[in-house]
Amino acid sequence: MAKKTRVAAPAGENPRRPCPCGSGKRYKACHGAGDDVIVTRPFAGLAVECDLVALREFLPSATAPLPLRTPAERSVTIASVLPGASAALVRPGGEVLLGMQVQTRSGDLSADLARALEWGLAAEPGTALPVVGPGLTGTDRLQDLIDVDAPLELTVHSDFAWWVAPEDGTEPSAEVLATVERANAVIMPTEAVEGDGVRAAYWVDTGTKAHLRWVRPEPEEQIVAALARLQARGELGLGEGTRYAGSFRAHGLLVPVWDLDRELHPSEWSKPVTDFAAGLAAALADTTPLTSEERRARDALAGKQVTLR
């Protein structure tokens, strides 16, 4: 069984401050509305923690087979978002789809996913679960149901055509096709950036800028110190035409963001990011105290928070 690490909201939490869960919302508009217990790092202990954070926070259209701890009769696919922002659905052929980008008031996203998964494995084909509500009970968390050491083989899609499953032998309705068309119209082009030492790094074109968003598994203090060492040496960029924009917190992890040259193809960032990963690994391994210049760089980086658009 995976260890449950639950952190309650601090007493007297300022309702206007960001919620400790990492959602980016104000506390009063998130978990401050009730007495729910907040798990600040819901996917801790999973090898796929960074991938799940990316699926939840910024990947527009992505899917991956979910490696269950105990084999089931139905295959399970986890996805960024499902039609209607459903928490889960069972296709007519029996495949279970779990959605990450869903509305929830629970303080433990891992437990929500486990409840949705257990619902999907037992539900009738062709049905959907709009939200994980109080009607679903259970004490399992995702860490209890999947192989905690297995990787997640993510596929980033250019559109939402995968919402329609031809293998089910059914023709999609005009309403379904219209839903897919509307979703395709607003998708932001996104591709994974791959390389040695690179995981959960994604190029995205927002329409006005291109960015690299890189989910990091290290504790925040450790990754910020490493970035500060690089900043002090003038090595925090990814090459000409790039700029370190800042970072945001998501579910207990830090996600550094760089502005990129939009003219370059996503594949052209593989080498610069791989080279940077080697320098970052060396900075992470450096345990000497920060110099005064590095401390100033750390303080400056701490104030650089970005907002996703």
Rank of each mutant, 00 (worst) to 15 (best):
P217K: 00
S173V: 10
T208C: 06
G197Q: 03
G234P: 12
A226W: 06
G237K: 09
L238S: 07
E181K: 13
T170R: 10
A201D: 06
E221S: 11
T179N: 00
D168Q: 01
A183F: 05
L230E: 05
A185I: 14
L238M: 06
S173P: 05
G234V: 14
R243Q: 13
A245Y: 02
E220T: 15
M188R: 10
T179F: 00
D196Q: 14
P172R: 05
P172C: 02
V215G: 06
V186F: 08
W203Y: 10
E194H: 09
T242C: 03
G207A: 15
T170S: 03
A174F: 08
L238R: 07
W214G: 13
E175D: 10
A210H: 13
L238Q: 09
D196P: 09
E175P: 06
D168Y: 02
V193N: 01
G169V: 14
V180D: 04
G207L: 14
V215N: 04
E240I: 11
I187V: 15
D196G: 07
R229K: 07
G241L: 09
A201P: 03
N184W: 00
E167T: 15
V198K: 05
G169M: 13
V224R: 14
W203C: 03
G241N: 12
Y202H: 15
G207H: 13
E194W: 09
G207R: 13
A245N: 02
E171M: 00
A200N: 14
L227C: 13
V193T: 05
P172E: 05
E220V: 15
E171V: 02
A192D: 02
A200F: 14
A178M: 01
G241H: 09
V176L: 02
T208R: 09
A232W: 00
R229L: 03
E221V: 10
V193A: 01
S247K: 07
